[in-house]
Amino acid sequence: MVPVSYYLALAAILFALGALGVLIRRNAIIIFMSIELMLNAANLLFVAFARSFESLDGQIYVFFVIAVAAAEVAVGLALIVTIFRTKHSIDIDELSSMKG
């Protein structure tokens, strides 16, 4: 069996990639995809730990997380579409009408 630390390393790398993506990319959709990557890194960790503990809890949590992520997608994409309609752009650097 692959040791759980391998999964942990992979999940940590995916999580870091996701976090980096949020910080450096400027397109709202790409940022959103990076956030999904972070959530899925956590999912991977849940499944890996659940397998090593031989318990089902962690695997069930993944379903919760997937459901929540789907709800977030619905709201997030709706927000992005509304922004696109007013600004004709989803570049977050252009979202700077408020300062201070």
């Binding site: 949020v22 940022i31 956030i35 959530l39 960790l45 997030g76 992005i80 979202l95």
Partner: peptide, 17 residues
């Protein structure tokens, strides 16, 4: 709304991990 959404979802990523 979009700013709150992106940063809020980012934060829940941290919480979940």
């Amino acid at each position: 709304g979009l700013k709150y959404f992106l940063l809020g979802a980012f934060a829940s990523g941290f919480l979940l991990f």
